[in-house]
């Protein structure tokens, strides 16, 4: 299966080194970043990956960011986090990844509100017992609400940068710890009742909304250094349980990478990944294939999403559905 996925990825690369989301489409930053990362872990992928990284470097805007694709000119924080991660993975901390970091940090912010609500909040803040619940995060699009997925990408990128061991820290990076803390609070605040996360709303008109495995896995990857938190443990329980019913190869691939970052059993997900990848060939896209390859590479100990050394973080109260699934 891995060979067939690899063949697909190699044959889908555009001549400029980029990938579109779907074979035959124009360059987009997200699939290019994932493909570049995935191929670095494959012997046959070294040259294509280098070409992709060159494409990423050449397209970085003067503000340090990247737009979602070549049709767009506005840099986007979530895409910049992914582009920055691809460069960080390959080159370590360089001027390019620091410029990306600056852009991501500048894009951080609170939910925009009308001036009258901002005045009301300012007046409330004069009370010493006031706790600001309007946590900052990242949005998909500038000047709109903050959401779980872009916040997870940005958070992971910042943590990876801080984790890169470089002594050379930009002024912004030195100030990033407050932003990281606030973004983590944002993610905890957006948790669904069932324990996981969806796109970022835990309820609608007073009714609880369901979490999704894909977004839960992304959030947990971003929160991997907080494995002892009960919210994280509950999220892992939800993910392990929901992954058994999951129908998306993309979600399973990210769930696999997520469980691996926590040092949890993930072998039971591989048969599901193979089945779903074959079942949904009609919809095969570059991002899904790249992430599926990255998921399979975890068997060799490679996981670009992981911070620091791997450790087993399973709590005693976590059940082991994966093992049950594998033995069934």
């Amino acid at each position: 299966m891995r060979e067939s996925l690899l063949r697909f990825l190699l044959s889908s690369q555009n001549t400029d080194g980029s990938w579109g989301y779907v074979q035959g489409t124009r360059a987009a930053m997200e699939p290019t970043a994932y493909a570049a990362i995935a191929l670095r872990g494959e012997k046959a992928g070294q040259t294509p990956s280098a070409k992709a990284l060159e494409f990423i470097r050449s397209r970085q805007a003067s503000d340090g960011g990247w737009p979602v694709n070549l049709a767009d000119t506005e840099s986007s924080a979530w895409v910049t986090a992914l582009g920055g991660m691809a460069l960080l993975e390959s080159d370590g901390k360089t001027a390019a990844s620091v410029a990306a970091e600056r852009f991501v940090l500048r894009s951080f912010g609170k939910m925009p509100k009308p001036w009258i609500l901002r005045v009301a909040e300012w007046m409330q803040s004069l009370d010493s017992s006031y706790v600001d619940q309007n946590y900052g995060g990242w949005s998909w699009n500038p000047k709109t609400a903050r959401w779980v997925e872009p916040t997870s990408y940005a958070l992971l990128f910042l943590k990876k940068l801080n984790d890169s061991g470089s002594e050379v820290l930009s002024l912004e990076a030195k100030n990033s710890s407050g932003i990281i803390l606030e973004a983590e609070s944002f993610l905890y605040q957006r948790r669904c009742k069932e324990g996981g996360w969806n796109y970022g709303n835990s309820e609608g008109l007073g009714e609880a909304l369901r979490p999704f495995p894909l977004t839960t896995a992304l959030v947990l990857i971003a929160l991997q250094n907080q494995s002892a938190r009960p919210e994280v443990q509950a999220g892992l329980r939800y993910l392990e349980s929901a992954a058994m019913e999951e129908k998306s190869a993309l979600a399973i691939a990210i769930a696999c990478l997520c469980l691996d970052t926590y040092g949890l059993e993930k072998e039971w997900l591989f048969p599901v990944l193979v089945t779903l990848s074959e079942r949904t060939q009609l919809l095969r896209n570059v991002k899904t294939v790249a992430l599926a390859i990255m998921a399979l590479q975890t068997r060799e100990g490679r996981n670009p999403f992981r911070l620091g050394p791997r450790e087993n973080t399973r709590s005693e109260f976590l059940t082991s559905p994966g093992l049950k699934y594998a033995s069934a």
Binding site: F212, K247, S248, L250, T280, L282
Partner: peptide, 27 residues
């Protein structure tokens, strides 16, 4: 709301109709 369109098509039951008629899907 969801980026895992592959799972959405499979879970919703639409995928078999696309396969039966060899109809392509554009995300």
């Amino acid at each position: 709301h969801r980026r895992d369109t592959d799972g959405l098509l499979l879970a919703s039951g639409l995928l078999p109709y696309l396969e039966d008629t060899r109809t392509s899907f554009v995300d």
